[in-house]
Simulated assay, not measured.
Amino acid sequence: MILPDLAQAESSTTPFPHFISPDVISSDVAGAALRWLRDDAQWELRVEDFYEQHELDLTFATGDGIAALAAPEFVAAIRDAAAALLPTEGELELVGVTAHRLTAGQTIRIHNDHIGKDETHRVLIQLNEGWKPENGGFLMLFSDDRPEAVAEVVAPAPASAFGFRISATSHHAVSTVRGGERFTVVYTFRQTA
Rank of each mutant, 00 (worst) to 15 (best):
V97G: 10
A173C: 07
A157C: 07
A71W: 06
E152L: 15
T107P: 02
G96Y: 08
P72A: 07
G179P: 01
V153W: 01
G136W: 02
A71I: 08
A83F: 07
R101E: 08
L69H: 09
V154G: 07
T184F: 10
L94R: 11
P87E: 15
T176C: 14
V123M: 06
G63S: 10
H100M: 13
G130S: 02
P133T: 11
I78S: 02
G130H: 02
H171W: 15
E91R: 06
G136T: 02
M140I: 11
V174Y: 13
T62D: 14
V75W: 07
V75H: 06
A70E: 09
P156R: 12
E73N: 06
F60A: 03
F189Q: 04
F189T: 01
N128E: 01
P72S: 04
F189N: 04
I66N: 04
I108W: 13
D118C: 11
T120L: 07
K117L: 11
S170F: 13
A77I: 00
S160M: 03
A149H: 00
G105R: 09
G116S: 03
G163T: 09
T88L: 05
P156I: 09
L102Q: 00
N112H: 14
E134D: 03
S160R: 00
A61F: 08
H114S: 11
P72Q: 06
H171V: 05
V177R: 07
G105C: 10
G63W: 08
N135M: 08
L127Q: 01
G137S: 09
A84C: 02
E91T: 08
W131N: 01
F60Y: 00
M140E: 15
L141G: 04
S143T: 15
S175Y: 09
P72W: 12
E148V: 13
V150M: 15
I108Y: 13
T184S: 12
K117V: 12
G63Y: 10
G136M: 02
R122Q: 15
P147G: 06
P87L: 14
A155G: 12
G137H: 14
G136P: 05
E134F: 00
A82Y: 07
L127N: 05
A151Q: 11
R109D: 15
R146V: 12
W131G: 04
R178F: 03
A149K: 10
D80M: 04
H121Q: 15
L141W: 11
L86K: 14
S175R: 09
A149W: 13
T169C: 10
H111F: 11
E91L: 00
Y187N: 03
V177T: 12
N135V: 03
A61W: 04
A161I: 05
L92R: 03
A67Y: 00
F183L: 05
